[in-house]
Simulated scan of single mutants.
Amino acid sequence: MRLLKIVPDNTNIDFVRLRFWAFGLTTLLTLAAIALVPLKGLNFGVDFIGGITIEETFPTAPPPDKVRAVIDALHYGEANLQSIGDGKTVSIRLPKQEGGPGKTNEVVKGVEAALAKNFPGATFSRYATVDGKVSNELKFRGVLAVVLAVIGICLFAIFRFEWQFGVSTGVAIMHDVLMTVGFFALTRFEVDLNIVAAVLTIIGYSINDKIVIDDRIRENMRRYRKMDMREIINLSVNETLPRTVMTSLTILLALFSLLFLGGHVLRGFTAAMILGVFVGTYSSIYVSSSLLITLGLRAEPTPDKPSKPNAASGAERVGPGRG
Rank of each mutant, 00 (worst) to 15 (best):
D14C: 05
V16W: 00
L28F: 12
T30A: 06
A32F: 10
L36Y: 12
L39C: 14
L42P: 03
N43S: 11
G45C: 07
F48A: 04
F48Q: 04
F48I: 09
I52D: 11
T53G: 10
P62T: 09
P63H: 13
P64G: 15
K66Y: 14
R68D: 15
A69L: 15
V70T: 12
D72N: 15
E78T: 05
Q82C: 07
Q82A: 09
D86V: 10
K88P: 04
I92F: 03
E98G: 15
V108N: 02
V111Y: 01
N118S: 08
P120A: 09
Y127E: 08
A128W: 07
T129M: 13
N136P: 13
L138M: 11
V150S: 09
I153T: 13
C154K: 09
L155F: 13
F159A: 12
F161S: 07
Q164T: 12
Q164D: 13
F165E: 13
F165Y: 13
S168Y: 01
V171D: 05
V171Q: 03
A172G: 05
A172S: 05
D176P: 05
V181Q: 05
F184C: 08
L186G: 14
D192G: 07
D192A: 05
V196A: 05
V199T: 06
T201G: 10
I202V: 12
I203R: 01
G204H: 04
I207W: 06
I217T: 01
R230E: 12
T247F: 00
L252R: 08
L253G: 15
L255T: 04
L259T: 04
L259E: 07
L259H: 04
M273I: 11
V277C: 06
V277P: 01
F278P: 01
Y282A: 06
S288E: 01
S290L: 02
S290P: 03
L297T: 09
R298H: 12
A299V: 06
S307W: 15
P309Q: 15
G314I: 05
G314C: 07
R322Y: 00
